[in-house]
Design a protein around this nucleic acid. Structure first.
Length: 678
RNA sequence: GCCACUGUGGCUUAGUUGGUAGAGCACCUGAUUCGUAAUCAGGCGGACGGGAGUUCGAAUCUUCCCAGUGGCUCCA
């Protein structure tokens, strides 16, 4: 019996009898309830059942770490597949990875509904309770072929992923086994606290031409308490979903008779949008932007030149063709496919809802002879664009078919690019920091070298991509490069944030474009007397007003800073006797530029508070006999904290200051304490 | 676009095996004038997303369309 030396994670080196398992060492170290799911052996993640027979380092992987949760989730996916195949023997498991919030498993040949989730969960719990040992088994390729012969998906993985003649491992729990590299939790009892959340679909290997699969999503936590907590958090997140809050707070409306993905900004929402636009406009004039206005439509030929119509037809609203042209075509017996051909070939022209503002701005540039002395030229417009998004993709305000970009196009010389990108990024950062949006990532979107969808030559692309990289680098924040995330005309720097349910949305964006100037043959006269080609920079710090507001609603959970609150102050009276005083007060505050709403109805004060707080004004002022007598107000913050006897002028001065300084949190009265309705 | 699920008055929602819809909030009216999360009473309002079908009879079954939700794919 030989001894081996193991270095533990506290740095100490202990001797053990060779042949001990990793799990046994961990149990010695942390006790039996160690909450450990696997271990790093020489920094490699392995099962707790791994036998230690030589000197090594050993570090437990606990379920409170990302790596630990990953293993727990992956194991839960196995348990899910075990339960599903037990209940639906014809279902064929394909793959089942962990995600950063839970896990899923994709099955072929499985048709289930929501009700089945309960049954499957029950089965999972039952299997979990059996405390099945999760065993790793090394198999040769032939053995694998044999074990999975009934499952063509697994066979495909074996054939594709496993090197000829090397074999791999399976994990076995009870009767069930799956092709897997592991590691996994030691027993199924670790997987008691699971919840299956939804059913959806996917395609085998993400390829629409391959088999459709049924995907089951779930979450798992190490303890009952943690599961409950996670479910509660998910529930909380749902409450701040902008689609719900948008309705509750009367910020926007989507009406099916207007159209899918078309936002109707209701008065309260319009205020928020307007404030944001005014806010950015200040910075635009400071940075030397010039405002322009352009129409919502343009001729097809314009978009033929820009490349939008030929390359992105399927994501645009269909063209509008003049009536007389239609009538003539009809009388000639023209069918739809001929019509499409005529449109493609440019034999007939029509109009299109603009998918982007740039062609219009390009035409403004081209409307005059430009000299290098004019550059950079910066044309800004809150321009509304229309895009034919796929039906299944449209969602709330974040993915829509008509939206307003806080757009601008900068026409610059090559050596102005870097500085101008800097200015654009500064705008985004001003917005984000002002609104306290810290949780975002920066992505430099590059072209996918495999794809044909991009316009322009490679040399230009290289230059533009280099410019974006340099700009990102000089920002001093973390950024990543992603191939295939470029616009079709150029690379870009995107600011990406997550919504409450974890979906990522691109907000601010800065894009470098060598192509449109080329396509439209834009020029400026240089100091050398020769014509040169300007470079365009597209940028939208908010991205789209719709998407930005959607994300912002969730960011603030509907509790906007005072300057953005649709109504900043709600005045409620205790009784009819203070009505006159309250109206005077309202007028006084409105004259000071404060958005005030008044309620002098005969409802009880409790009722009024309840009604008005649901609209989340920054402050509610309660006006009773005392306030009237002393010319003061009683302030109630969203937190429920109140302060009485504040002189009116005092309050007006403070709130005006708060609004002007765009304070992120109303702070005349403490807003920090939450007393959520039960 | 694909897969699954959902769709009842402005909002939230009940509606068992098919027999022509119940409620709360909101709204209106009356009473009440009451100090900080819902005063009391009465009333208006829906043929159940839309069309077609099965049936003596459908919100409840079938089918097509529309919209929403969760995903997939796609996102200039």
């Amino acid at each position: 019996m030989s001894l081996i030396e193991v270095m533990l994670d506290d740095g100490s080196v202990q001797s053990y009898v060779s042949g001990i398992t990793a799990g046994e060492i961990i149990s010695e170290q942390f006790g039996r309830k160690h909450g450990c799911v696997a271990a790093y052996i020489n920094d490699e993640a392995r099962d707790l059942s791994t036998i230690i027979d030589q000197n090594c380092s050993l570090r437990g992987i606990f379920s409170d770490s990302d790596a630990g949760m990953d293993i727990l989730r992956h194991s839960a996916a196995h348990l899910l597949a075990q339960a599903v195949t037990a209940l639906f023997p014809s279902a064929k498991p394909t793959i089942g990875p962990a995600t950063d919030r839970g896990f899923y498993y994709d099955f072929a040949n499985l048709k289930i509904g929501d009700n089945d989730l309960k049954v499957i969960t029950k089965k999972m719990n039952e299997l979990s309770r059996k405390n099945l040992l999760v065993e790793r088994v090394e198999c040769s390729e032939d053995e694998l072929q044999d074990l999975f012969q009934a499952n063509p998906f697994k066979i495909e993985i074996i054939n594709d992923k496993i090197e000829e003649g090397t074999g791999s491992t399976i994990y076995r729990q009870g009767e069930w086994y799956d092709l897997c590299l592991g590691p996994h939790v030691p027993t199924t009892s670790k997987l008691m606290n699971v919840k299956l959340t939804s059913i959806s679909s996917a395609y085998w290997r993400g390829d629409q031409s391959r088999e459709p699969l049924t995907r089951i999503y779930g979450i798992v936590e190490p303890s009952k308490h943690a599961l409950k907590e996670t479910l509660r958090r998910l529930d909380e997140a749902k409450k701040r979903d902008h689609r719900k809050l948008g309705k509750d707070l009367q910020l926007f409306h989507i009406d099916e008779s207007v159209g899918q993905g078309l936002i109707l900004w209701t008065p309260r929402g319009a205020i928020i949008r307007n404030e944001l636009q005014q806010f950015i406009s200040q910075h635009l004039s400071r940075q030397g932007y010039q405002q322009v206005f352009t129409p919502h439509i343009g001729k097809l030929d314009l978009y033929r030149t820009s490349g939008h119509f030929p390359y992105y037809q399927e994501s645009q609203y269909p063209p509008m063709i003049p009536r007389d042209v239609m009538a003539k075509l009809a009388s000639e017996g023209c069918d739809c496919s001929q019509l499409a051909n005529f449109l493609d070939e440019g034999q007939i022209d029509g109009y299109m809802l603009k998918p982007m503002n740039c062609p219009h701005h390009v035409k403004i540039y081209a409307s005059q002879a430009r000299s290098y002395r004019d550059l950079p030229l910066r044309f800004a417009e809150f321009g509304t664009v229309y895009r034919w998004e796929q039906t299944g993709e449209i969602s709330g305000m974040t993915r829509v078919r008509g939206f307003t970009q806080d757009d601008a196009h900068l026409f610059v010389t090559e050596d102005q690019i870097a500085e101008e990108i800097q200015g654009c990024i500064e705008l985004v950062q001003i917005i984000f920091s002002n609104l306290g949006m810290k949780d975002y990532r920066v992505r430099v979107g590059l072209r996918d070298p495999q794809s044909e969808k991009y316009v322009g030559d490679a040399k230009r692309w290289d230059l533009a991509e280099a410019a974006c990289r340099d700009a990102a680098q000089s920002m001093g924040v973390q950024w990543t490069e992603e191939e295939g995330e470029a616009a079709f005309y150029g690379p870009k720097i995107d600011f990406v944030v997550k919504d409450v349910i974890g979906r990522e949305w691109q907000l601010g964006t800065v894009q470098v474009d060598y192509n449109l100037p080329e396509r439209f043959d834009l020029k400026y006269k240089g100091s050398d007397g020769e014509f040169h080609r300007p470079v365009m920079i597209h940028r939208a710090p908010f991205g789209s007003m719709e998407r930005f507001c959607g994300v912002l609603i969730e960011h603030f959970a509907g509790k906007f800073p005072t300057w953005l609150s649709p109504t900043q102050v709600h005045i409620v009276t205790i009784s009819e006797k203070q009505a006159d005083f309250a109206h005077e007060l309202t007028m006084k505050m409105r004259n000071a530029g404060i958005r005030v709403e008044i309620d002098d109805s005969d409802a009880t004060i409790g009722k009024k508070i309840r009604t008005h707080r649901s609209l989340q004004p920054a402050y509610i002022l309660v006006i009773g006999e005392e306030e009237k007598a002393t010319n003061t107000v009683s302030i109630r913050a969203r937190s429920g904290i109140q302060e009485s006897g504040i002189p009116i002028d005092d309050f007006i001065e403070k709130i005006t200051d708060e609004i002007e300084r765009k304070m992120p949190i109303p702070s005349i009265v403490a807003d920090s304490v939450e007393d959520e309705a039960k």
